[in-house]
Design a protein around this nucleic acid. Structure first.
Length: 211
DNA sequence: TAGTGCCG
DNA sequence: CAAT
């Protein structure tokens, strides 16, 4: 490994089946942000309820299935909350980026049908949880960060496993599947900051195959 | 257990 | 770790 790639690794292994790809999406971020801004205007993110209380993040979706929470639990829904309208298709730039990241991580057959969009204002966070409402656990999760930095917590199979802290920045991608597909993960409270393109917020896109 | 606050 |  030469000096440049030692300082700027493009692949960091987190666990069996899981990796962090720092800056993987940087070449498409301007295009991606342009499309995402239009989506967020048309489909404003909403705070979801959970059995435990109101989430601090705001959520929107693209794709055939959108993630929804309510006081009884979590589910994937073909329609927007409180409406009878479907979500728009996953934007081609996002779909291609997710498939390329999955391939780089060792999942060449990734076909996402759901893109969950989580918007973190400063102070927002996400507690440790598992993504386990999908049908096919052979398909990985692909996560893309935009905007201000945040600390991603990547734990293990048990809630009590000590998480690794990953400082995610604009353009970073994390992929987890295989043995780590159901590992606990979360996000520490986001600190106040300004990103030159995205402003005072962090946005996370999570691509999955829900059905 | 996709949140929160209390307790030791 | 409750209470869902």
């Amino acid at each position: 490994m030469d000096l440049f790639s030692a300082q700027h690794p493009d692949f960091v292994s987190l666990a069996e089946g899981a990796c962090w790809l720092p800056g993987f999406a940087l070449p498409v971020m301007d295009t991606l942000w342009s499309g995402l801004q239009q989506h967020l205007s048309a489909y404003p993110p909403q705070q979801m309820m959970t059995p435990m209380g109101l989430m601090s993040v705001r959520t929107s979706s693209m794709g055939s299935w959108g993630w929804v929470g309510n006081s009884r639990g979590y589910a994937y829904s073909a329609t927007q909350p409180g409406k009878h309208l479907p979500w728009p298709a996953i934007q081609p730039v996002i779909l291609k980026l997710a498939e390329e990241a999955a391939r780089r991580a060792g999942y060449p057959d990734f076909v996402p049908d759901s893109c969950l969009i989580n918007v973190y204002a400063p102070g927002s966070k996400m507690g440790l949880h598992q993504d386990k409402d999908e049908m096919d656990f052979t398909q990985p999760i692909v996560s893309l960060s935009l905007g201000i930095p945040a600390t991603f917590l990547f734990g293990g199979a048990k809630r009590t496993d000590k998480p690794v802290k990953i400082p995610l920045q604009h353009g970073d991608v994390v992929v987890w599947g295989g043995a780590s597909r159901r590992f606990y993960h979360g996000v520490l409270q986001v600190k106040t900051n300004i990103h030159p393109l995205v402003g005072a917020q962090r946005i996370n896109l999570t691509l999955r195959k829900a059905r």
